[in-house]
Structures are given as structure tokens and as C-alpha cells.
């Protein structure tokens, strides 16, 4: 599993017409470490590794930013809408608290 952290899959509709508002879903493999407690129930103080920001850019412009906490699930998936005006790259970038940066790219083509 450790080797898999940061693997991303993005799903976009297979046929998009110019101007369509379409839904995109992305999943990233990530532990989203949750707070641990020791045998006495005390919180273990350490640098927890979790995604704290997700950025979506389309045609080079940021269209959505998600700030996230440890209340987001492990291997999280995110869904959002965007208006497909032109063909071009849609990128989703995940940043985690330990400096990890994981990016996925979907090449938007218009029918």
C-alpha cells in the first residue's frame, strides 16, 4: 500500500459538448492518518499525514479549492462540477501535511 500513496484516478464523461456542465470524480490513494491515542487514551503527538488541500485547475485557472481535515476518509474521492467551455487540461492536485504533492490530469475533449 505504501507504494501506492498518491495514485490517482479521474473520471470524466466520455462525451462532452461545449458549454456542458459536467461532473468529475477523482479518487486518490492516501492514508489520511487519523488521530491516534495511546493506551491511556492520550493523543499521540506526531505529524499526522493527511491531505489538507485539493486544487482543481481547468485551462490553467483554479476553479475549485478544497481545504480538508482528518475528517475526510482514507483513500478519499471528490466529486465536483465544471463548465466545459474549451478542450484542454483539467488537473487535480492533492497536497498533504508532509509535503506530498500528487497531481492527476484529465485531458478534456469536446465532441
Amino acid at each position: 500500500m505504501a507504494d501506492d500513496v498518491g495514485r490517482i484516478r479521474i473520471r470524466v464523461p466520455s462525451s462532452i459538448k461545449a458549454g456542458d456542465v459536467v461532473r468529475v470524480r477523482a479518487l486518490v490513494i492516501h492514508p489520511m492518518e487519523r488521530i491516534e491515542r495511546d493506551a491511556q487514551g492520550k493523543i499521540v503527538q506526531k505529524a499526522y499525514r493527511y491531505i489538507n488541500q485539493v486544487t482543481v485547475t481547468y485551462l490553467g485557472r483554479t476553479i475549485l479549492t478544497l481545504d480538508t481535515t482528518q475528517s475526510v476518509s482514507e483513500n478519499p474521492s471528490f466529486t465536483f462540477a465544471f463548465r466545459a467551455t474549451d478542450p484542454g487540461p483539467l488537473t487535480i492536485t492533492f497536497l498533504d501535511t508532509t509535503g506530498g504533492k500528487y497531481a492527476g490530469l484529465a485531458d478534456i475533449k469536446l465532441a
Binding site: M1, D4, R9, A26, L27, I29, S77
Partner: peptide
Amino acid sequence: TNNPGVLL
């Protein structure tokens, strides 16, 4: 994008 098992 729903089942991490597929991706892995």
C-alpha cells in the same frame, strides 16, 4: 474512482 481496489 469509487473502489480503490480497482485502481490498485
